[in-house]
Nucleic acid binder design. Sequence first.
RNA 1: GCUGGCGUAGCUCAGUGGUAGAGCGCGGGAUUUGUAAUCCCGCGGUCGUGGGUUCGACCCCCACCGCCAGCUCCA
Length: 639
Amino acid sequence: MEKVRIRVNGKELEVEKGANLKDIFRLLNIDGALGGKAGSKLIDLQTPIREDIEITPIFKDDPESLEIMRHTLSHIMAQALKELYGYEKVHLGVGPTTEEGFYYDVEVEGHAIGQEDLPKIEEKMREIIARNYPIIRKELEREKALELFSGYGEKYKMEIIERIDEKDTISVYEQNGFTDLCRGPHVTSTGMVGEFKLTHVAGAYWMGDSSKPMLQRIYGIAFWDKKELEERLRFYEEAKKRDHRRLGRELELFLIDEDIGAGLVLWLPKGGIFRKILEDYWKEEHLKRGYQLIYTPHVGNAKLWERSGHLSYYKSNMFSPMDIEHEEYFVKPMNCPFHVAIYKSKVRSYKELPIKLAELGTVYRYEMSGVLHGLMRVRGFTQDDAHIVCTPEQVEEVIHETLDFAIGMLKDFGFEDFKVYISTRPSDAIGSLEQWQLAESSLKKAVESLGLSYEIDEGGGAFYGPKIDVKIRDAIGRLWQCSTIQFDFNLPERFDMEYVGPDNRRHRPYMVHRAIFGSIERFTGILLEHYAGLLPLWISPVQVRLIPISPDKHMQYVLEVENYMKERGIRVEVDSRDERLNAKIRDAELQKFPYIAVVGDREVQERTLSIRSKKEGSLGTMSLQSFLELLLDKIRRKE
RNA sequence: GCUGGCGUAGCUCAGUGGUAGAGCGCGGGAUUUGUAAUCCCGCGGUCGUGGGUUCGACCCCCACCGCCAGCUCCA
């Protein structure tokens, strides 16, 4: 009998080739393992070992164990569907695990699985779990496997078998007469799974190909511990509570109206103030760093977009052209060509580089209806755009400064946790290898010198240049793409951009395209979700809600306070309704104003305010001036 | 764009093959309030849009628009 050498927990031993972990663990008196890591591959107790390899047992405490039982849950769900809708009616696609659970892509003949079917499916799954069927792994010859699944009418499974590499083994897992093609791993019986819940159903193309039929994807989440499962469900609740679309309406910030058009945003007065604060801050910070502010039009001649290459590479995202005196014009999907035109408006000397042109430029892109989502994905949005043109010698410094600027600005909005991705040269790249090398190394140096950890997406850059993407982590752990710093070797060539060097000759500059927020709309959405609507004082549209207990008696003093605050730059709103104090407090709380200032007889008498903070509750009474100082101090510190 | 679900008053939602209801909001009145909802009265809807079936449609069918969850896409 042939032997293989394995190493388990540091112990080396020889076992028969084809032995599985169950045998091996029994031999070593390892109890309670659900599977193991063979090299880097997660396998289950039934998978045969056929090569010399290091094995680490996986127990319930190991995160990998979740993957094993989640995988089994997806099989249990598949079996439940078969039993509910008929073995011959249900055609299975793929059923993998996800970060928090599992899904299965299925086709049920003559029935569309809906949300209301989920409880029924769950119930059937629980039955299968309660019966604790043993799960048996088998290996099959390709022909046998094809024969088997063709017998079941499993057309999608047959397609998978045909795609499996000749030299790989084909395995199936069987539980109480239900056999599924699967590479595993699985637990050894249906009773060994954890807590689960089916969450939702959605469509998913077979093989992710939009020309192929669409299957139904049933999602579930699963954990060993019921508490963890509930925590996860609470996370969904929390995310729902933070939904910027809801907050945007409740806080009267913005509106998306179908009569205006899908994906087009109306900013309401309070949203308008918010935007002004954001934009003023943005402009000031850019001016401080030597950017020059520009404005460019919303449409441009087709010839411009032809020259820039947008009409050959980006046309499907552009709105249809309009005819203006027999010439075609397009609404801009990007600001770049205009910025290039401004650069080219005169001969540039190396002495004035780097030139940094910045604009809050509103662009319009045709996005497919199905992808639109609140402020996060829209058809008209304002990029906080800038183009930096520089000499090769300046590239490194420019990138460093730009990334530093972006991170600093994001920190001002309360984001502390960043993930940085560098995307490098793809195979269809244009531009010289030297250009790419200089650009890529400057990106890496900038990230490293700022002490940020990063991942490299090898070959993931656009054809015209490498880039850095910055994602921020929000208060409940989600990542959002914001900043991007992107080299462009294409436009300088296409538009023949030049500068005159010290040698009095013309040279091709480097151009970098960058955005920090990404877009004002999207960033607003992210802020709202991050802060659950409770915006930091300095960007809150209304900073103080002033409430007279009895408008008749206290209004005069309240108006005086309002003036005092307004003159000093504080955004105040008076609630002069003839309502009870409790009602006015409640409304102010619901609208999440950072501070509420109550005025009654006492306050009028003493010329004070009774202050209530959204975050800290009651702060007691204080004089006008000390309240103002408190506000100004927090605003200065961007709290 | 695709699959499934949904579309009733400004908002959240109930409802039936015989042309609609609640709460909040809004308007008016009463009340003059001390830290999360005072009471009364009233206004408000061609039931997403357009076709069709039917004696009759908000309800059934079709198309379109929009929204939601995914998929696909994302220079």
